[in-house]
Design a binder for these strands. Structure first.
Length: 278
DNA sequence: GGCCCGATGGGCT
DNA sequence: GCCCATCGGGCCA
């Protein structure tokens, strides 16, 4: 006899919980009380630098660009740290932006995070089954959507988290490129759900942003392209408010036309190490 | 590779 | 009652 739906959902939730419980010996070590007491510069590697509130206090477009190259960190309940370099973002500008949830100044319980101080997370459910992670920027109702990460640390845990949420868990194993190449994929891979809504990315113990390592090789060129999945927003549909690292294999959708267009606004990521004028 | 389409449920009109 | 800032599987080239 097939399990009732409610029980199936319960089993799904249990699998999620289980996946957070599964620990390698190293992860068990990290989760011992003495080692998990503080995440703030408690070990040498933490000196890489957590980004504070001032970083988020800039307009949506510049923040969306500034995010590229920075490292998003998620610390699970068991102490496991997952890291991914941000390679793709979208800016949503606020009331005038017809594609934004805050269009026309709409402020509801759901989108309250968009109107809170810069650095506040706005996490919402989409299509009944997925989450999207946004970060409030300067400007009322403006925010940045995080669309793709290059997974750096904790890839096997990310794979488990992603697999536990897929229907055919017996199917093929996910490739590294499939772990975080989309706004809802990265939420699955980092175990980010609605409970993260309205948290402060500059203060939270379970999720934060770190300075990306300074580029040693060639600086990345940033492509400005149209945003994804907003076909209903009139003139706003085509505005180049999606930003991604050109050539990165971790990006969710490549826009060849935008890459070939003359884009004088294209710049290198990470704090203007290089300005590229094509 | 590209295109098509079903899943799925909270939010909003 | 419709919309939706998505994803993954199936199919075809």
């Amino acid at each position: 006899m097939p399990a009732p739906l409610s029980r199936k959902i319960g089993q799904k939730k249990q699998r999620l919980a289980d996946s957070e419980q599964q620990q390698t010996p190293k992860e068990r070590l990290l989760s011992t009380p003495g080692l998990r007491r503080s995440i703030y510069f408690s070990s040498p590697e933490d000196h890489s630098g957590r980004l504070g509130p001032e970083f988020f206090d800039q307009p949506a477009v510049t923040l969306a660009r500034a995010f590229l190259g920075q490292v998003l960190v998620r610390r699970l309940a068991d102490g496991t740290e997952l890291r991914g370099r941000i390679v793709e973002t979208e800016a949503y500008l606020g009331p005038e932006d017809e594609a934004a949830h805050s269009r026309g100044g709409r402020q509801t319980p759901r989108n309250r995070g968009m109107f809170m101080k810069p650095g506040t997370l706005y996490v919402y459910l989409i299509y009944g089954m997925y989450f999207c992670l946004n970060v409030s920027s300067q400007g009322a109702g403006a925010c940045v959507l995080l669309r793709a990460l290059e997974p750096l640390e904790g890839l096997e845990t990310m794979r488990q988290l992603r697999n536990s949420l897929r229907k055919s868990t017996v199917g093929r194993s996910l490739k590294d490129r499939e772990l975080c190449s989309g706004p809802s994929k990265l939420c699955q891979a980092l175990a980010i759900d609605k409970s993260f809504d309205q948290r402060d990315l500059a203060q939270d113990d379970a999720v934060w942003l770190e300075h990306g390592p300074l580029e040693s090789s060639s600086p990345a060129v940033v492509v400005a392209a149209a945003r994804i999945g907003i076909g209903h927003a009139g003139e706003w549909t085509q505005k180049p408010l999606r930003f991604y690292v050109q050539g990165s294999p971790w990006v969710s959708v490549v826009d060849r036309v935008a890459e070939q267009m003359d884009q004088p606004q294209q710049t290198a990521c990470s704090e203007g190490l290089l300005i590229v004028q094509k």
